[in-house]
Deep mutational scan, measured.
Amino acid sequence: MAEAPPRRLGLGPPPGDAPRAELVALTAVQSEQGEAGGGGSPRRLGLLGSPLPPGAPLPGPGSGSGSACGQRSSAAHKRYRRLQNWVYNVLERPRGWAFVYHVFIFLLVFSCLVLSVLSTIQEHQELANECLLILEFVMIVVFGLEYIVRVWSAGCCCRYRGWQGRFRFARKPFCVIDFIVFVASVAVIAAGTQGNIFATSALRSMRFLQILRMVRMDRRGGTWKLLGSVVYAHSKELITAWYIGFLVLIFASFLVYLAEKDANSDFSSYADSLWWGTITLTTIGYGDKTPHTWLGRVLAAGFALLGISFFALPAGILGSGFALKVQEQHRQKHFEKRRMPAANLIQAAWRLYSTDMSRAYLTATWYYYDSILPSFRELALLFEHVQRARNGGLRPLEVRRAPVPDGAPSRYPPVATCHRPGSTSFCPGESSRMGIKDRIRMGSSQRRTGPSKQHLAPPTMPTSPSSEQVGEATSPTKVQKSWSFNDRTRFRASLRLKPRTSAEDAPSEEVA
C-alpha cells in the first residue's frame, strides 16, 4: 500500500521540484479525499487562508506561464504608474523644462484676455472677434484635454484613487474654476456660431469669465498662502490700524457733515460726507466734493493729517511682513540645501571615528588635552595620597570615625582645627580638600554678606603664586578674593596644593 505523501509545513519547496517556489498556508490543510486516503489533490490556500480556484496559477517567480503573465502585467503596471506620476508632476508640480508648457498656457490665456479687451473697442471689434473665435476653439481643445489628463493623473495619489477620489480631486477650487471656464468657452462658441440675436450679448458677457483663467496660473496657491501667512502673522497690528482709521473716518465725516450741510449742497446727507471722507483719507482725492466753510476746511485738514497716518499703516505693516517672510523662506531654502550635506558629513565622520582606533588626527579633542595637561583624576589621586601619608595610611573619614581611648597616647600629631565659614567644625583632613566650587561659593557668600568690609582692609600687593609662602596660607580663606572669576591669580592660587600645619609646630611643606 502506497504511503501518503508527508504533510509539508512552511514555505519550503517540495523535494524533486527545486526551481518551484510555492506559497503554502501556515497550517497544512488537505482535502477530505486526501485525509481519507483517496487520490485527491490537496486544496490550495492563499496567504489569508482563502481557498484558491482550481485553475488559478500559483503565485511565485517560477510558476510557469502564469508567472510570465504576472511579470508582464507587473511591468506594465509599473510603467503605467510611472507615467501617471510623471504627468501629475508636470501639471501640478512643474520643475525644470516642465515650465515651458505652463508658459505656453499663460501666453494663450493672456492673448485671449487681450483680444477680449480689444473686442470692446469699436475700431478693432470685428478683427478681434474673428481672432478670438479661432483662439477659443484652440483653448477649448487644449483645456478640455488638460482637464481630463489632470483628473486621470491624480490617481497617482492615494487620496485621489478610484471614482470617489477623482470626484474629490474635481471638487478642488482650481478644478472648479477650470470647469466653469470650459463651460463658458463652449457656451460662447455655441452662441457665436448660431448667428442669432443673442450671440452678441452672450459673447460680450461670458467672454470675461475667461479672466478666471489668470487665476489658474498659480494652481498651488503659493501667492495666496504667502499673503495669508503675512496677514495672520500681523493680524493684531492690522486690526488696530484699521480700527483707529475707521473711527477717524466716521468722526471726521460726521463733523464735516454738521459744518457743511447748510452751506454746501455736496454734503446734503451723511452718506455724501462718508464718501468724501473715504476718498480723502485714502489719499485718492477725486475733487467732486470739497468743503466751502472755514470750519469745514479746518476739520477736514486736521482729520486728514490724523487719519492718513492710520490708513497708511497697513501698507507699511504688510510690506515689512512680506520682507520678513521672504527672508525666512530664503533662510529655509539654505537650511534645506545644507541639511543633507551636513548629515552626510556627520555620518562619514562617525564611520571614520568608529573604524580608526588610533585617531591620531583628533588634535583638538579632550583626549588630546588630557594627555598634555594633568587630568583631574590625577589631581584627586594626588590629594588622596598626600592625605593618607599624613594620616598614617588612613583616609580622612576613617580618621574622624576612629575612637580614641581616654589616657591613651595619640598616634597622630595634634592638628589645628579649622572652621569653614557658615558651618560647624569639620575634620581637619578636609581643609585642604576644598575644591574650586567651594572656594568660589565661599567668595560669593563673603561678597553678599559684607562687601563694604573688603574695601576697608589695607590693599594687598598682588604677587605671583611662585613667590607666595606656603606656610602662610594655612586656610583657603587666605586666598585673595576677587569680584570676578576671570582673575588668573585667584584661579592659579585655588589650584595650588595647600599643606596642613599642626598647632604646635607648623613646618612648611611643599608638595611638588
Rank of each mutant, 00 (worst) to 15 (best):
P61R: 07
A18V: 07
L23P: 08
P6Q: 01
A36G: 02
V87F: 09
F99L: 08
G245V: 01
W242C: 12
R44G: 03
G34V: 11
A315T: 04
F99Y: 12
L113Q: 03
I197T: 10
G319A: 11
P13R: 09
R20C: 05
A184D: 00
A301S: 11
A233T: 14
V181A: 00
F208L: 04
R72P: 04
F143L: 10
G195D: 08
Q84R: 06
I180L: 04
L9P: 07
A315P: 03
S73F: 06
G228V: 11
A233V: 04
A2D: 09
L135M: 15
G62C: 14
S185L: 01
M214I: 03
V138M: 03
A21E: 06
L305V: 08
L132P: 00
F208Y: 00
V87I: 04
L227V: 00
A312T: 13
S63Y: 15
I197V: 09
M206V: 00
G10C: 07
A36E: 08
K236T: 00
H102Q: 13
V114E: 03
M340L: 04
A184G: 14
L132F: 07
A2S: 02
A184P: 01
S320T: 10
I148N: 03
L9V: 07
G64A: 11
S65T: 15
E3Q: 12
C112S: 11
S229A: 02
I177V: 11
Y101F: 09
C157Y: 05
F208C: 00
E136G: 00
G55V: 04
T27K: 07
K261N: 13
A4D: 04
T240P: 00
H330L: 13
A25E: 04
S269T: 08
T240A: 01
D262H: 10
A28S: 09
S205C: 04
G62S: 02
A259S: 03
S116F: 01
R93G: 07
L9R: 05
P42L: 04
D218Y: 04
R81G: 14
Q327K: 15
L345I: 03
Y257F: 00
L305I: 11
M214V: 00
R297K: 05
P14L: 09
L115P: 00
L127V: 06
Y232H: 05
S205G: 12
S65A: 06
Q30R: 03
R79P: 11
V183L: 08
G10V: 03
G245E: 15
F254Y: 11
V114A: 06
Q33E: 12
V248M: 02
G40D: 08
V103G: 08
G70S: 09
R150L: 09
G155A: 05
T27M: 04
L9F: 02
Q194K: 03
A154V: 11
I105T: 10
G192S: 15
A76G: 05
F137I: 09
G66R: 12
G70R: 00
S67P: 02
P5S: 08
P173L: 04
A75P: 09
L306V: 10
G245A: 15
H292Y: 10
I308S: 09
L295R: 01
L249I: 05
G192R: 15
V141M: 00
P13T: 04
V100I: 06
L58H: 08
G228R: 00
L133P: 00
